[in-house]
Amino acid sequence: MADKKIAGRRDILLLAIVLVIGGICMLIMALRPAAGDGIVEITVDGAVYQQMPLAQDAEVEIAGYSGGENRLIIEGGVVHMESASCPDGICVRHRPISKDGESIICLPNRVVVTIYSKEEGSVDAVA
């Protein structure tokens, strides 16, 4: 780099460190086993809305915060958001989830869908 004020050695080092940390975290998450017999928990605005087994195919209509609506589909141990009333649709474009601790979040409707595996209990109760 021509100018040290823009990007010196320390800047490149910082970038490398951050990328490595992020990469390791992502790798750990990707390598977690699928929670085949886990439960799917749906919360709306912080309160538990519904719980159901991951193994069983289902289609759920979720009444979200302030009139929002989401449709969730569980199929073959994989969960995805079919449709949502919110304008951005981030949760709909979110990749399907199947592993312990993974979640789909719809911010406008305050809907959080999380998978917990049965044996380990909920890891997040501690966090």
Binding site: I21, C25, M26, T43, G101, S103, I105, D124
Partner: peptide, 11 residues
């Protein structure tokens, strides 16, 4: 959202 789950998105 009153959940810590968002940190899965952190990496």
């Amino acid at each position: 959202l009153e959940t810590g789950n968002v940190w899965y998105y952190f990496p």
